[in-house]
Design a protein around this nucleic acid. Structure first.
Lengths: 186, 186
DNA sequence: TGCCTATGGTTGACGCAACAACTAAATGGA
DNA sequence: TCCATTTAGTTGTTGCGTCAACCATAGGCA
């Protein structure tokens, strides 16, 4: 009788140990999540606000920062590559949701700011988005599971990006900036 | 002093409650994961085996099943839409990694099987892929966290797809089939 | 039998992302 | 000062995914 039960436990050269049943279950569950959740986010935002989830994240970060941000900083904050961000920001600029400003301190650099229109779109898009996030994620989990999820996701992203090149910058760079920008307008 | 700390706690119409700090942390961590993990999987597989992660999943499911599978069944098993799968299977067919067979019982339906070449590619691609999955996910987590992850991911996918239209079919459809197919060749 | 709807799947157009190649400006020596 | 290297960002190409439209068959049911 064969022991070959799950796809990822299938026979293969044994340089790397196969996944046991528990590991396999966790991985398959995660893979399903990786397929389903992003499309759900994109289609809700696209339908209701003509934004991709990534565009929404970019606008959110800009609003959070409250002042112009370097492209490279924004890329790190959204876990994206610079080419990707560049294309997205160009599109958002064409729609007049953001503005590009040449940096004065470094003439290679580009800073990005949210326009008023961008802010309006974002504010309008947010409730529906949060509703989905709640329905799909937050409300399906207990408080304990929320903490577990945070720890688990952090472990994985840390393994994928040990140098924190794509770290969310919420603490560190952006956060202190955001507070500064905010207090200066108070 | 403003309490506006995280993007998702930003002010907005209050029809839907904002995320508190714990919810926000979990969500941001998950979003980073959703950006980083898929690209890591795709780029490893692409580099080493000229496969996307989704193509790998399709081939895996076919190997697991051990016999021709309905397109629609395969779509559910891989959490994909039928158009997406159709395109992918056509590409895989062009590369002679899978074969399409007209079903005899239902003349609208298409069944898909792994070719020998497809099996070889898959076997060659698997160790490197598993190595990444281990390095990034499995080995970063404790046994307890693996169980937590399974439960959490299942809750979320269940909320996103309550009718289980995109359920992995590992138990139920495919599993029993796979066992049957396997015992018939013993 | 004939129709009507539902199901299974394919196709083409369009939009977004990855990758590589490129320009321009800054930095760090010799 | 001059050159080499690194950093910041943009652009073009190519490939994949989504969506809508479509065709063909199956399954009621009158």
């Amino acid at each position: 009788m064969s022991e070959q039960l799950f796809p990822y436990t299938a026979d293969m050269p044994r340089l790397v140990p196969r996944l046991d049943e528990q590991e396999s279950a966790a991985w398959l569950a995660l893979v399903s999540l990786l397929e389903l959740l992003p499309s759900a986010l994109d289609s809700q935002l696209q339908r209701d606000s003509e934004l991709t989830h990534f565009e929404f994240a970019v606008l959110s970060m800009l609003k959070f920062a409250g002042e112009p941000i370097r492209m490279s900083e924004l890329a790190a904050a959204t876990s994206a590559t610079l080419p990707r961000l560049s294309h997205v920001v160009s599109r958002l600029q064409r729609r007049e949701l953001v503005e590009k400003v040449a940096s004065e301190t470094d003439r290679r650099a580009t800073d990005v700011v949210l326009t008023d229109a961008g802010r309006r779109i974002l504010v309008r898009a947010t409730p529906g988005h949060i509703a989905l996030v709640r329905r799909a994620v937050i409300d399906s989990l207990s408080r304990e599971q929320l903490e577990q999820l945070t720890a688990i996701a952090d472990s994985i992203t840390n393994a994928l990006d040990p140098d924190r090149r794509f770290a969310a910058l919420v603490d560190g760079g952006l956060e202190t900036r955001a507070l500064r920008a905010r207090s200066s307008t108070t």
